[in-house]
Design a protein around this nucleic acid. Structure first.
Lengths: 218, 218, 218, 218
DNA sequence: AATGAATGAGTTTTCATTCAT
DNA sequence: GATGAATGAAAACTCATTCAT
């Protein structure tokens, strides 16, 4: 399909009658809506409209609003796993590797605000959808990578001992997630614009300081 | 409110008390519903039912679902502010004070899971409600307290310099919030029960290690 | 409620805000619609309209189209049972009693064409609704009455022996049911108006002839 | 149609045969669906699925759901007429001929439960389809045959006089139709399994008793 | 002859809110 | 203060049918 693009005239670009395209347009629109408004708040009609189709297609491809949400979640998990693969922590010094991980997490959430909305919705509903999904335990490769880095750091007497990679990963995610997910209330409560360029740079530095301050022995 | 009872004649007194009681039963029920299902997901009918009244009373006291949500938010903020007052960080050594803060935050979220749900909902809606509320900037006293503790710690050459109390507070909150708020997906993804007694103890230790590891100079 | 009617001004006659009345208006309208169009063919909107309310009330009182159908069935069964109570077969000679039963069945179906429609629908759906209903086995009193009449007739050597009252009842019902239920196709196929006054009289006579011809010994 | 095969070249032949096959698979599937669920309850999608094709073919061959229903009705009528031809009542004694007719009717409905469902649906809709169909009045041959048998019986002073063959035929059909069509509700109401082998044998005997009891003079 | 994709109109159901008592 | 009945607007979902290939 991708290979064809060059050959196909503009007309087809705008083509109706393209299953894959319609399907992923719906998925994309649904991702935005669900992230922004939650499962209950999202409107099937609006998703269809945003996707440039009609409600019926949504049911044609996904059967129900709920199943559409599952598909959206699955795609979101898949995306972050794909992105994580680009993190080559093996090739870096322990400190560099941790820096990369923190920066990556920060940037990923910054660029994919939908992901946080989806996670919230999913957790509000008891995480039912993830449970019945093949994505389960897919995060283990990342945990293994973190474990390996921690091990190397300890070998080199740079990192403290006894660090649980799962706890560490959760903490790294926490530091960016909470800040970004709650940016509105936090900005109000602390009378600061947490999303200004300056504030964002500061946050990243702070997070690096916290994580490395915790890990690195001196 | 309690002090007034003696003055008011018995009959009216009972009416008053019932009114107050109904009001707060609704507020309590609404807190649960909004926290669990969000603003859009919560059902006016269910709130009334849970509160043991009927829908009409809900409108009698709060005018609309939206205003009920605001009342719920306000009460939640009020509660956490009240609880924070019990934190006497002034009377403690810097390290003890920070420990107290971390433990307090952890326990508060643990015991008030609704609060996280409400924050999520509020942020999903752009934090509009907090903005139009007197609760704004009420967190400053806590920030000041943290600032004072950090200052003391630096004076005593125990804590690192240049720590922003707001960033620190956000980070402390982050570490517990993300863990608890996303317990379902995280438990699934890491195939661990994050809410077992053991896991909870470990998390608290880890958080203390991270925060103190970052702050304390050795 | 009935006793009040005389006292209450005309205005209230047309009253909104009368639970029982609304409920039974809906039930009545639904009976007609379901009988005429079946469960799938009936339109919730039309039922509401016919009942002089709105769709919402229908769900308020009956939860769903399906449950409304069950309520309709239950009421229909109840009605026929009530009507059957007026048949005083005990007080009649065996032959008169059987004549009464045949005539009653014929007239009841003639005057309650909905009942046949409902039975058809119910049977098309596997009779699920009757099964979960208290109406079950309520027909036994009638069967006992028929049994008693048959017994008397045999004692008096008027009726043949060995007649099963259930079979007999089914046969009596059959003779009117099929004729009335299939009046359209039968009229077409036999090029006769089966519903003319004359035809109806003839049918009743024929049925009496068949049943008594079968029962009576001469 | 079958006779033509030899003339048509192999390739086209196969196509033709497939076309015919698809057509009749649809017809068969539709018969089941319409009989079971009625015109409104039947789903075009499910019919296609059951027939192993897609919805489009259904429109290709039958233009619309309604016309498909008509085709189904027509085929059903055609089938029963065909079957009735096998009834050689002329060759039998009057009593044997009537026995054959009763048994035939019973067995035909027993083996073709769809036919009853279709009749119900058709009548629920006012019998419109039969009216616009060539099948009309096609039942007359049968009525004539019955008339002839009744005549013979009367001549031989075995049968009572004045019996209308149409009424008799309707009655015979009634006795089996009602029993089978309403087997679900009747089984429930009388707490008997009307479809057990024993019950079916008993019903046939009862029907023969009723009809012959009515007809035969002794 | 066959098929998957697309659609609009309609249908059931839900929801927050208000009325009448 | 309290309550059951009522409502209209909107939401999710369904269906027969048609389009494009």
């Amino acid at each position: 399909m991708i290979g064809n693009e060059a050959v196909v005239p503009a007309k087809l670009d705008k083509a109706t009658r393209n299953a894959d395209r319609t399907r992923s347009l719906i998925l994309e629109a649904a991702t935005q809506e669900f992230a922004e408004l939650g499962l209950a708040g999202a409107r099937v009609e609006k998703i269809a409209e945003k996707a440039g189709t009609n409600k019926r297609m949504l049911y044609y491809y996904f059967n129900s609003k709920d199943e559409l949400f599952i598909a959206v979640m699955e795609r979101a998990y898949f995306s972050i796993r794909e992105a994580e693969k680009e993190l080559h922590m093996h090739d870096q010094t322990p400190i560099e590797a941790i820096r990369s991980l923190v920066s990556f997490t920060w940037n990923y959430f910054l660029e994919h605000p939908e992901f946080m909305g989806l996670l919230n919705t999913e957790n509000a509903h008891g995480g039912v959808h993830v449970k019945n999904s093949e994505s389960t335990a897919l995060n283990m490769p990342l945990i293994d990578m973190i474990g390996e880095v921690l091990h190397r750091g300890q070998q080199e007497s740079i990192f403290r001992a006894g660090v649980d990679p799962v706890q560490l990963y959760i903490s790294i995610a926490s530091l960016t997630y909470f800040y970004l997910s709650n940016k509105h209330t936090l900005s109000t409560i602390f009378s600061r614009d947490l999303m200004s360029s300056k504030a964002k740079v500061e946050r990243l530095h702070h997070m690096l300081d916290v994580i490395l301050g915790y890990l690195v022995i001196n």
